[in-house]
Structures are given as structure tokens and as C-alpha cells.
């Protein structure tokens, strides 16, 4: 039987859920930022084909992408203490999510850094730029813009996957809700509420990313036969803003 929906109860627990939401946002944003750094570094290392480092990145990316995040979380939380490394649940959450997001972001960004036209890198060399300068001023900015749509999917997944941290007791949204259900047994109201909160958070973030994507996008409308490369060169030659 379906119990009647108790709206008053939702208002009562909303402050509690908002503290959980704050934690969800905190670990998500931190992890997205760290995975951006990991991902970009990994992508540049692979595109440049730096020996040893490149292989390490490949192993890291394949390992993380082909094993469940939940196992990473348990590994960090239950195995590391045995090796003498004690981390708080929040720290484990952020590290696990960052490593996970970083592996996916590395793949995302590699699509972008690989697509940077070779002519531009050669131009950089001709201008006497050092490798670091080429990376800093050509590969990263262009690669980022090209692969931002792919990365934004990863970033949204990081937010969704922050719910995994319930399993080790991080006081994020899902945990707060499940914890409270154990007291009040208002399962129906509580789950519906957090589902709505998650949807607002995730759809909202996706929408925001789509706006940014549109601002960064310069590959959909290129000149004839331009493709991605032609689009970039076109864009750089002419004004940064398109008339349409």
C-alpha cells in the first residue's frame, strides 16, 4: 500500500538534507577540479608520448576505467589503513572520485590534445617556443576547448557517483537521507525528495555545461571541408565571435 505523501515532513528534514547536499557539492567540485588537472596532465603526457610516464598513464587509465568505483572506495578505505595510511571517509571519497574522474578525463582530453593540428605545434616551434610553452599556450587551451563536451559528461558522472560515498559513511545527501530513514521510516517521502534534489542538481549542471559548450564550440559550423582542424584555424584567423 502506498502511504499518503507527507509534505510537512519534507519541510522538516529539508535543512538536514541541505547539509548533505553541501557535502555532495563539496566533494564533487573538489573532485572535478582535481580530475581536470589529472586528466589534462595525462592527456598531454600521452599526446607528447613521453616515455615511462606515458605508459604509467595508460596503465592508470585502463585500470581505473575497467574496475568498479565502489571497489576503489573500499580499497582506499579498508586496505590502506592496513598499510599504515589512515584517511578520513571524506578524504577517501575525494581521492577515489578524483582518481576515477581523472582517468576518464584523461581519455576525454586526449581526444582534444590529439586533435590539435600539427601545423600549429610546428608553428610554435618555428616561433622558438619551448615544449612547455607549446603545451601551455597551444595544446592545453585548444585541447580543452575541443574536448570540453566529453569532459562535461565525466564531470556530471562525478557528481552522480558521489552517491557511492554513502557506503563508507560520508555525510553526503544519500547518506543523510538513508540515515534519517532509519529513524522515521518515511522511506517514500525521503527517497522521492532526494531523487528530485539529485535531478535538479544533475540536470542543472548538465544544462550549465551545455551553455559553456556552446560558448566554447567552434567545430560544428566550419567552412567546407574544414573539419575540426579547419574550424580552429578559421576561428583563429578571424574574429573570435561569429555573426550567427
Amino acid at each position: 500500500m502506498v502511504v499518503s505523501f507527507d509534505f510537512g515532513y519534507i519541510l522538516d528534514v529539508l535543512p538536514l538534507l541541505l547539509t548533505g547536499l553541501k557535502m555532495t557539492v563539496l566533494i564533487s567540485v573538489t573532485s572535478i577540479a582535481v580530475s581536470l588537472i589529472i586528466g589534462m596532465s595525462g592527456a598531454v603526457i600521452r599526446t607528447l608520448g613521453i616515455p615511462v610516464l606515458s605508459q604509467i598513464v595508460v596503465v592508470y587509465v585502463d585500470l581505473i576505467r575497467n574496475t568498479p568505483l565502489l571497489v576503489h572506495v573500499f580499497y582506499l578505505y579498508f586496505v590502506l589503513p592496513a598499510l599504515g595510511i589512515k584517511l578520513s571517509a571524506v578524504a577517501v571519497g575525494i581521492i577515489a572520485l578524483s582518481l576515477w574522474g581523472g582517468a576518464f578525463a584523461a581519455e576525454n582530453f586526449r581526444g582534444g590534445t590529439d586533435a590539435v593540428p600539427h601545423a600549429m605545434i610546428e608553428s610554435g616551434q618555428a616561433l622558438g617556443m619551448s615544449t612547455w610553452q607549446i603545451v601551455r599556450f597551444i595544446m592545453i587551451p585548444l585541447g580543452f576547448r575541443i574536448s570540453f563536451p566529453a569532459f562535461s559528461n565525466t564531470a556530471v558522472s562525478v557528481i552522480k557517483n558521489s552517491a557511492y560515498m554513502t557506503s563508507i559513511g560520508v555525510a553526503e545527501l544519500t547518506f543523510m537521507a538513508m540515515d534519517r530513514i532509519a529513524y522515521d521510516f518515511k522511506t517514500y517521502e525521503m527517497l522521492a525528495t532526494i531523487a528530485v534534489i539529485y535531478l535538479i542538481l544533475i540536470w542543472g549542471t548538465s544544462y550549465l555545461f551545455r551553455i559553456i559548450e556552446r560558448k566554447l564550440d567552434y567545430k560544428t559550423k566550419t567552412t567546407k571541408g574544414g573539419g575540426i582542424n579547419g574550424g580552429i584555424i578559421q576561428k583563429l584567423k578571424f574574429s573570435p565571435r561569429r555573426a550567427d
Binding site: T174, I181, L191
Partner: peptide, 13 residues
């Protein structure tokens, strides 16, 4: 849009 965990809890509970 929903995290898988939430779908799982929704179905289970």
C-alpha cells in the same frame, strides 16, 4: 540523470 544508487534504493525500498 538519477545516480544508479538512487534508482537502486528507489526500486528496493
Amino acid at each position: 540523470g538519477l545516480p544508479i544508487l538512487i534508482t537502486l534504493f528507489l526500486v528496493f525500498f
